[in-house]
Nucleic acid binder design. Sequence first.
DNA 1: CGATTCTTTGAAAACAGTCAATCTGTGTGG
DNA 2: CCACACAGATTGACTGTTTTCAAAGAATCG
Lengths: 218, 218
Amino acid sequence: MYKAGLFSLILHAIASPSKSNNVFEAFRKYIREKSNVTEEDLVQIEAVCQYKKLRKRQYLLQEGDVWKYNAFIVKGCLRTYTVDDKGNEHILNFATENWWTGDRESLQTGNPSAYNIDALEDAEIILITKTNFDQLCNDIPAFNDMVNAILQRSFIASQSRIHTFLSLSAEEKYQAFLQKYPQLVMRVPQGMIASYLGVTPETLSRVRKQSSKGHRPS
Amino acid sequence: MYKAGLFSLILHAIASPSKSNNVFEAFRKYIREKSNVTEEDLVQIEAVCQYKKLRKRQYLLQEGDVWKYNAFIVKGCLRTYTVDDKGNEHILNFATENWWTGDRESLQTGNPSAYNIDALEDAEIILITKTNFDQLCNDIPAFNDMVNAILQRSFIASQSRIHTFLSLSAEEKYQAFLQKYPQLVMRVPQGMIASYLGVTPETLSRVRKQSSKGHRPS
DNA sequence: CGATTCTTTGAAAACAGTCAATCTGTGTGG
DNA sequence: CCACACAGATTGACTGTTTTCAAAGAATCG
């Protein structure tokens, strides 16, 4: 882990004299691509951004806490999950670079969150408090539009995932996952993918064995 | 079926000289409750509303068609579903009075829809074309806010449903459904609830039998 | 290297799906 | 009004998939 830390330190030193400038640049790039905000707007947006580093396994949000931010992932991979009575984890989603994460429900209602969010890898994120975020949405129509477009896409993706639960077997769900998130397969432990798909790690292991047979019959 | 038609004809004659005024009144009430639009705004909104009746089993949207509206349900119950290779139906959602329905994905992308939407009962709905709807969102901030709040709630509900698939057994899913949508249990054939829960009608029937034993042990 | 975590494998049990038959209620036509 | 057809629900026997529990085998990290 300190190996990675050293590496990124060097990178930062090369790329930019200031670590956080470098980080915000990724965020700026994202916003410019996704919306029509002006450079002035960007200044206003950055003014309310908080930068945060997470180490692998560190919580961003813990069940029972109230979530008060919107979180943009600059680097790393996070998961949102619950733990049931038997201690089984159920992963609601993964989030990597250029995704947003958080608990919309807790943010909206102010109730304690039912979810945990933690880092699967060392991560760097940008946090904006709800208050500031709402302000940005009010002040900058283009920002508001972007936010709604993201929500819209999230909803559509969510519906599509529900459909996989309704209609696909364990194997088919895994194949669909491979298609949709090939990058994640490399980054995320298999057992967590199983949890995301709603099957046990053992089942996913067997499913993989089966389908590798099928694809290479010799 | 013509019995119901006659009945509602009489009701309309009593309640209002104009059938569609009566219908729009329900819509107006909804909008007033959910947003801060002015009465002027309401006039603008109603100006682009289309009224439509659906008979039981009639399609609102058929797989392969492009969806171009937002649909508000004044009366009746609709379902969104797909049919797989084996002819099995998979119900993504039900929608009743004061809900919106449609296919956001097709609406957004302009691609043919993967879903079917049809009426489980005779229904009355209000349609607003995407173009007009977007215009309303632009012209009336309060309307835009309402729409986003609805989307937000839909997303949260959607996440919650995903969680049920990840963590609950057939019986638990059914119990959760009873809790969340007691009205629907009365209105929707049991086999369709099974389809919504992602189990077969036979399994749901057995699950019900089991849990009725459990609750009344004598 | 040693410890931990993750994955694989096996055997048995629980769970849900399939297919086919029967039962129930509803509405239709004779 | 009755007999019938039809759709939906239930039941039974069987099959297949997935889970569970336990153990052994990789892989990873400090």
